[in-house]
Nucleic acid binder design. Structure first.
Length: 399
DNA sequence: TCTGGGGTCCTAGGACCC
DNA sequence: TCTGGGGTCCTAGGACCC
């Protein structure tokens, strides 16, 4: 059908590479980013058995000669922006996947940029020359194949999968190479005697579906047979914003939980407002000492970007979880804001006295006047009120 | 490998509506 | 009086990804 014109570009050991770039003393040495847990390891460290998410103490025991550096998120974010500028300069369509990884579609660029492999080679040398970072690139007909190719080319590699050699490349790989196959699905498929991508391709959909469900079966069969119609397209807007934090081990009382929750709400609400978005669903996530998890969610009648409103919802959710928290050893809490909308409709909480409740409309008018006096005429387009008895604060709808 | 912090997507059941 | 099917929204949990 078509030619291999999708690039998957993936920076190598990204955080560690930025550290080695910025500090010549680290070059050629095993480098671990992150103290408590390994966030990234240089290839020299990986060669000694260090891997991402590894416990920091174990890492230092396995590789005592490694340099351990604290993460510098701002530096990584800046480096990522510089690399993305090169991506955008290389291809008309760029789909960012994460801070260190993107798809580029270079179809139809032969006359201006050369063939896809030529474009990929030039991209690699530009990222090295201009951003000072090694990057691996896979080139193939589909996103999935390009992604697998970049992984196989690492570190600092380039791999082109020609359309007539796709099965030869893909089928010998272990099933974990398929998108959506993790520990659980691997165990299930291994139980059926399926170990490689080729094994999946040769299994009937009905047989697969019996073990992993209809939709996962169809998805895996597509990937294993080189079918992946998803186009490279710029990412949609983010669907949720969240923050989480692990608890130090040991006893904790209610006020500790409260203050950590409040800090997380403050952080996420700030990010929400900075993104000019509002949320309608507020959820909390809990993790316990035995690594079991629980979550609670609450959907508001109106979207909000107000810290106080979000915090009130979060407190309700924690109240609803009180027994669970009392019984088990709480080790992590998370806050997530979902159902995001543009922030042009926002719920605000306004105080209302018992008296006001008897004359709600005039109280609302008064509140609207107050807000306009403080923030200007234009901030409110429409305003309405809902019943506080429903546990939802009084909203206004600023423009 | 005993576990960070950020996310996405899927499933299944219940409430509610027509 | 009893009963159908389709659709949406919400919640909780789980698997997976970087």
């Amino acid at each position: 059908m078509s030619t291999a014109s999708i690039l998957h570009a993936d920076l190598d050991a990204f955080y560690a590479s930025v550290e080695q770039r910025d500090d010549p003393a680290l070059r050629g040495r095993p480098v671990i980013v992150g103290g408590g847990v390994v966030l990234a390891a240089s290839y020299e460290a990986k060669a000694k058995g260090i891997y991402t998410t590894m416990n920091g103490r174990d890492a230092r025991r396995v590789c005592p000669e490694a340099a351990v550096v604290q993460p510098r998120m701002e530096a990584y974010s800046k480096a990522s922006k510089a690399v993305y500028e090169i991506f955008n300069d290389t291809a008309p369509v760029v789909e960012g996947i994460s801070i260190d990884e993107a798809f580029l579609d270079v179809a139809g660029m032969e006359h201006i940029g050369g063939t896809p492999p030529e474009i990929a080679a030039r991209l690699r040398s530009r990222v090295l020359a201009e951003a000072g970072l090694p990057i691996s690139v896979g080139v193939a007909r589909t996103k999935f194949l390009a992604k697998v190719a970049s992984g196989a080319s690492k570190p600092d590699g380039l791999l082109v999968v020609e359309p007539d050699r796709e099965a030869e490349f893909l089928h010998p790989l272990p099933i974990e190479a398929l998108w959506g196959v993790g520990k659980v699905t691997t165990a299930k498929l291994n139980g059926m005697g399926i170990r490689t991508v080729g094994d999946v391709a040769r299994t009937s959909r009905v047989r697969l579906a019996g073990v992993i469900g209809e939709s996962a079966a169809a998805h895996l069969l597509d990937l294993a047979n080189g079918r992946d119609p998803r186009p490279v397209s710029p990412r949609e807007r983010r669907k949720s914003i969240g923050a989480q934090s692990a608890f130090p081990r040991g006893s904790r009382d209610r006020s500790e939980v409260d203050s950590l929750a409040a800090a997380l709400v403050d952080r996420t609400a700030r990010r929400l407002r900075a993104a000019e978005r509002a949320c309608r669903t507020v959820s909390i996530g809990l993790r316990f000492g035995d690594f079991s998890r629980a979550s609670r969610a609450r959907t508001l009648a109106f979207p909000t970007d107000q810290t106080e409103t979000i915090l009130a919802a979060v407190r309700e959710l924690f109240d609803a979880s009180r027994e669970e928290i009392a019984e088990k050893d709480l080790t992590l809490i998370g806050i997530s804001l979902g159902n995001l909308e543009a922030a042009d409709t926002v719920q605000m909480e306004l105080p209302l006295s018992e008296n006001d409740r008897l004359v709600e409309n005039s109280a609302l008018d008064q509140a609207v006047d107050d807000v306009r006096a403080r923030f200007g005429e234009g901030v409110i387009k429409r305003a309405s009120m809902i019943d506080a008895d429903q546990g939802v604060p009084v909203p206004t709808l600023p423009d």
